Computed example of a mutant assay.
Amino acid sequence: MRIKILLVLLFFKTMTLFAQDKLVLFFNFNQDIINEKSQHDFCKWLEHSKGKEILKIQGYCDSIDSNSYNKELSFRRANNVLALLEFNKVHLSEKLELYGLGEDFKQLKNQSDNRKVLIYYQDKLSIKKKPDNGNLAFENTQGKEVPVNETKNNVSLIEKVNTAKVGDLIKLENLNFHFNSEKIITESEPILSDLLQVLKMNPQLKIYIYGHICCNNNPNDVKLSYRRSKFVFDYLIRNGIATSRLGHRGFGSTRPIYALPEKNEAERIANRRVEILVVKK
């Protein structure tokens, strides 16, 4: 029995090695966001990503500039691709490997072919133990529904922006602030990162950032909502988004989703929010 189980495990490990596939994404010179063609390729790959598991991400650079700079740039490229995968709810291996190799590899003759990230992935396989005899069996989970918070709120920001029209308002889900403060809670930091990623991937996109609060019947008290919208605005500016693409404003409690005074905490949470208005695409 032990030999049989060992042979099955060896077969599984060998099959896993052969099942690996890879996606190549390319970058423009000195950029850490995938180029327009690779954005298209990634979106096509994403349509068929259900049931896939990311094993390894490797970032590369051309040989221009110093070795230390290229090493740092390749790490940024790999990390941004990782953020893009996380943003789109792609399954990551618990033993995910991430590398920035810089220029330290066999460079191709065409420099643009060296500015890339390689994503290694495989179809997820689960090992189940049969209750009758204890033998191991394999079950391919590809094509099955993955139970990851299947709610309307789970639609990615990039999907909302892609389907939005000029003039549409998009709520930044789960962007929460400390009480009576413009500082976001730690758990909400990825939301800002997602918004930054969307703006970098859509260079023509222009937005206004609208802040709202709850529980305040004074229509003239917009200070807190203004500070919250400006916090998001300042974050984007610090991370390279041009001011010409952004605007911000605080509305206080003048545009509630639920009428004041709110009846419960759920209504208060819905009213205190940050939205973006799509101004140009």
Rank of each mutant, 00 (worst) to 15 (best):
I119P: 01
R238F: 05
D194E: 12
G240S: 06
D21G: 08
N88V: 07
G211L: 08
L172P: 07
R227T: 11
R249Q: 11
I119C: 01
N135V: 12
E94Q: 13
V198I: 14
T163M: 09
F29W: 09
S126G: 05
S74V: 00
P219E: 08
S225W: 12
P190W: 10
I185W: 06
E159W: 02
I158R: 06
K22G: 02
D132F: 15
N218F: 05
E189R: 13
S93D: 10
I209V: 07
N271M: 02
K13W: 01
K200Y: 05
I170K: 04
S253Q: 02
L169K: 09
E145N: 08
K130F: 09
I276T: 04
N70Q: 14
A83D: 11
N239L: 03
E275A: 01
K280D: 15
D41T: 08
V155N: 00
K152F: 02
T254D: 00
R238N: 15
E139D: 10
K128T: 07
N154I: 11
K183Q: 10
Q58V: 15
N135R: 12
R76V: 00
L192R: 13
R255V: 04
I119A: 00
K109E: 14
Q122I: 06
R245E: 04
T186F: 11
E103N: 15
R227V: 04
H178W: 00
N154H: 11
A78T: 04
Y235K: 06
N174S: 12
G59A: 03
E97A: 07
A266F: 03
S253V: 10
L108Y: 08
E159T: 12
K37W: 00
V8D: 08
V161N: 01
I237E: 07
H91R: 15
H91S: 14
S193Y: 02
G100F: 08
D62A: 03
A83P: 00
K152S: 10
R227G: 04
R115V: 01
L260Q: 08
S181P: 04
K144S: 12
K56V: 06
L195H: 08
L157T: 10
E187I: 08
V90R: 01
I5V: 12
D234T: 14
S225P: 11
P131T: 13
Y258K: 06
N114G: 02
